Computed example of a mutant assay.
Amino acid sequence: MRKLTPPNDDAVVVFEACIERVRNADLKRRLQSCSEEIGEASAEFDQKAAVAELHTIEAKDNVANAVSVDEMKKVYTARMAKKMAPGRIYYDRIMALPEHGRCPLCSQRFVSTLDHHLPKAHYPSLAVSPLNLIPSCQDCNKTKSEDIPRSSEQETLNPYYDDVEGFIWVKARLVESIPVSIEFYVDPPRNCDEVLKERLKRHFNIFNLSSLYSSHAAEELANIEFIARKIFENGGADELKNFLRDAAESRVQVNKNSWQTALYTCLRESQWFCQIRFL
């Protein structure tokens, strides 16, 4: 997962911009009565997301006893996410947060939608709260679906609040076969907080990152087959190991927990790959 700078737009300001063009007088009156609760809900989210206590936020089936879940869903879909909608400017700002447009949840696919970290079907007061909206790819958004955490350990990582880029926790193991296959797994440092360890594993499993990374690794292995064999034939195992070491170190500089970093580290450390694979 890649860290993102949190959006700084106020939830109430965003909400009020979204409902500005509502023509139905009764609906608009009821929506306007929700502003206070929406502000309070966003503040509670901000406080509890920082300490992995989102599971303590109560799920609801309405906002301020005035607006239904379906009505709040429409505020998001029709008045924020839709092109030319009054709240679209805030949608676009959040979409533009990830570097290179990559999904921060999987670090691979391109951002194409916003994911509600806490699902709007159960937390309607957070439907348009910027802090609850994570730029993501379609696959991560669909995979996560309406997952509701029941404990701190079940909370997936949040790019706005969790910084897990300073230590290595994504690793890979090589299966000695032809063609070579790579398995990815989570292995945080021993001094890592126990709750965070479980959240890292949860995040990895919820978004099916092992399968995604294994697929990319298989393609990468096919791409380097020719050059790796040539290096081995010309310089032996030591030269191949040097090549893989440089490749791993280069990728560490970009992202310690990318599948590329884990792949090349795994290959470099494999005596079988460096000494036997190309015999």
Rank of each mutant, 00 (worst) to 15 (best):
P104M: 04
P104Q: 00
P104E: 03
L105Y: 11
L105E: 12
L105P: 11
L105Q: 14
L105F: 13
L105A: 13
L105T: 15
C106M: 07
S107Y: 04
Q108L: 13
Q108N: 12
Q108P: 04
Q108T: 15
Q108Y: 04
R109K: 09
R109P: 02
R109G: 09
V111Y: 03
V111F: 04
S112R: 10
S112N: 11
S112E: 12
T113N: 09
T113C: 08
T113Y: 00
T113V: 12
T113E: 02
T113L: 03
L114K: 08
L114R: 12
H116M: 01
H117C: 04
L118P: 11
P119A: 06
K120L: 05
K120I: 07
K120T: 05
K120R: 11
A121E: 11
A121W: 00
H122T: 12
Y123T: 09
Y123C: 08
Y123Q: 07
Y123E: 10
P124V: 10
P124N: 01
P124H: 00
S125P: 05
S125W: 00
S125L: 01
A127F: 00
A127E: 00
A127V: 07
V128I: 03
V128E: 01
S129I: 03
S129C: 13
S129N: 07
S129Y: 02
P130K: 11
L131E: 04
L131C: 09
L131S: 06
L131F: 01
N132L: 06
N132A: 06
L133G: 15
L133V: 14
L133C: 14
L133T: 11
I134Q: 05
I134F: 02
I134A: 05
I134W: 03
I134S: 07
I134Y: 02
P135G: 15
S136Q: 04
S136R: 05
S136H: 09
S136A: 15
C137G: 14
Q138N: 02
Q138Y: 08
D139E: 12
C140I: 09
N141R: 05
K142L: 14
K142N: 10
T143K: 13
T143R: 08
T143C: 06
K144Y: 07
K144G: 06
K144A: 03
K144F: 04
S145E: 05
S145G: 06
S145K: 03
S145R: 03
E146M: 08
E146D: 14
E146S: 10
E146Q: 07
E146Y: 08
E146R: 07
D147N: 10
D147C: 12
D147E: 10
I148C: 14
I148F: 13
I148T: 15
I148H: 14
I148S: 15
I148E: 14
P149Y: 00
P149V: 09
P149D: 02
R150N: 14
R150Q: 07
R150L: 07
S151R: 13
S152K: 11
E153R: 12
